[in-house]
């Protein structure tokens, strides 16, 4: 019951603070590091150094741009009382994938699997990519992929995820075209 009361307060705070803005289907600058061609219109909100785009709501699908986190920063917000492990600027692709896994595990997702880590260019920069699947605490299955690169000792990532049924496949092709359109500024 105490949990319900705290969730109630949390939801009101979230609703009061967060606003979405429109991202048009055109070339968009992600910070001052690169641009992408948005294939469709999205809704955008910002959390610190991260932009979160969605079409149908973040519970269903989201496209996350992590914009140059530095040594000591966490990949995600951990929620109240949860300190997530930090990024280190000398991390390899394998270590960043492990950081992703540890961070999500601490947030509380279940059955997380990361697959097929491989080199992949991030615009003109050498980067990495992997796919992943997991389930929320309530059992709803999600899947996604992450593309990343360390540029000037800062980690840039594009993470697309959504419900395995319908919402991940719905815009996967749009996001694949978007990541192929990365142009460094």
């Amino acid at each position: 019951m105490a949990r319900l009361a705290s969730l109630f307060i949390l939801a009101l705070l979230i609703a009061a603070c967060v606003q979405y803005s429109l991202v048009k289907a055109e070339k968009v600058a992600i910070g001052d590091v690169y641009t992408v061609d948005a294939q469709i219109a999205w809704n955008k909100k910002t959390e610190g150094k991260t932009e979160i785009w969605t079409v149908d709501g973040p519970l269903l699908q989201e496209l996350r741009f992590i914009k140059g986190i530095e040594d000591g920063d966490a990949l995600f917000r951990g929620g109240a009382g949860k300190k997530l492990p930090p990024f280190k600027s000398k991390m390899t692709a394998i270590e960043i994938k492990e950081l992703f896994e540890t961070s999500l595990a601490q947030i509380g997702v279940a059955r997380l699997k990361t697959l097929n880590l491989r080199p992949e260019s991030f615009g003109k920069v050498a980067g990495f990519r992997f796919e992943f699947t997991y389930a929320l605490k309530n059992g709803l299955e999600k899947q996604g992929f992450a593309l990343g690169a360390v540029i000037d000792e800062k980690l840039h990532m594009i993470i697309y995820s959504g419900t395995r049924l319908h919402y991940y496949p719905k815009h996967k092709d749009d996001v694949e075209r978007l990541v192929r359109s990365i142009r460094m500024i």
């Binding site: 609703a15 979405y20 429109l22 809704n43 909100k45 079409v55 709501g57 519970l59 269903l60």
Partner: peptide, 18 residues
Amino acid sequence: AVGSSILLHKFASPPLPT
């Protein structure tokens, strides 16, 4: 999840511009 999204983005806040 769809119902929660409708409640959040259509009945409450924040709305989704699209």
